[in-house]
Design a protein around this nucleic acid. Structure first.
Length: 290
DNA sequence: GGAATCATGTGAT
DNA sequence: ATCACATGATTCC
């Protein structure tokens, strides 16, 4: 009967490009030994090569090939060596006014008191809403003090995503309020809107150690990366690299607190709470926008 | 090269 | 006390 030829063609609007991108990255990463051609990839996704190329480039500003190159071990190692990437700097100087978005500079953070942390969110009202983002559906959570949580999910994955977050502060009161989270969502993924006048307020809810790790992450400049042991050094506990890994993983505000810029010492990508593929996507996206 | 192994700090139960 | 980790260095094939 009717074969679904156009099945992959229409995807729901809003962050939909990411779905395609995700599959491309996944595919390339799995079969990177085979060096699959654009053509082969397109065939696997039931799309025409040109269409795929177009979608991908619209999303990343980079061809799939260039993108993949940016996520390669070699490149990662270069990010790690603090030998400033001449490439990035020139492209900024060239006058791409917008994209320099060193958004980290305009984030103000505030940590919760230990007492509040121990209450596990008790007495706290958290409003949340789902919004499209370049990396899939984003779950945004805010308190009256500022942004408290940011999570990602794939299409139709929203419930699991929400679960994951509400578990962290089980005693808090949760209210679905898309109106309240909307302004945050808009600004997060449009870093051009982050100004010194109106910095993005974030609230770090975690233990003392975790908060220190997260603050350290915030200092990593856009488009660069550090190792877990770098962070351990930065907070004055050089031997706690493993603990750092755990703390990084517990970061409730992914992307804003750039946990994706933490790599293994070899430059290899290690785990990511919301999926390694998403980590790759973020890194590649950043190299393209830097 | 890669798999297995161990030393390790923190946080949750 | 004990266990699970988004690590990292070392030691085996």
């Amino acid at each position: 009967m009717n074969m679904i030829a156009n099945m992959t063609q229409d995807i729901t609007p809003g962050g939909s490009d990411y779905e395609t991108v995700r599959q491309v990255i996944e595919l390339i990463t799995e079969d990177y030994r085979d060096q699959p051609s654009l053509e082969a990839i397109a065939a696997r996704l039931h799309q025409s090569p040109t269409q795929l190329q177009k979608t991908f480039t619209r999303w990343a500003g980079l061809s799939p090939k260039a993108f993949l190159q940016a996520v390669t071990l070699d490149h990662a190692k270069r990010l790690l060596r603090k030998e400033e990437l001449p490439l990035l700097e020139t492209s900024i100087e060239v006058g791409l006014s917008g994209p320099s978005r060193l958004h980290d500079l305009f984030v103000t953070h505030e940590a919760m008191s230990p007492g509040e942390w121990k209450a596990r969110g008790g007495g706290l009202t958290i409003r949340y809403g789902f919004h499209p983002s370049p990396f899939g559906i984003a779950l945004v959570m805010v308190t009256d003090r500022g942004l408290a949580g940011l999570a990602f999910g794939d299409i139709d994955d929203e419930a699991a995503c929400l679960d994951d977050m509400t578990c962290r502060w089980p005693n808090a009161e949760y209210v679905a309020d898309r109106q309240a989270t909307m302004p945050y969502a808009e600004r997060i993924f449009e870093p051009g809107k982050w100004t010194e006048d109106q910095p993005l307020r974030v609230v770090l809810i975690g233990t003392d150690f975790q908060v220190r790790v997260w603050e350290s992450l915030l200092k990593i400049p856009f488009g660069t990366a550090v190792t877990y042991s770098d962070i351990a050094n930065d907070i004055g506990k050089p031997t706690a690299m493993r603990a750092v890994g755990a703390a990084v993983g517990a970061n409730p505000i992914s992307f804003v607190v750039p946990c994706h810029r933490a790599l293994g010492k070899s430059g290899a990508l290690t785990g990511y709470h919301w999926g390694l593929t998403r980590k790759r996507a973020m890194l590649g996206w950043e190299s393209a926008h830097a």
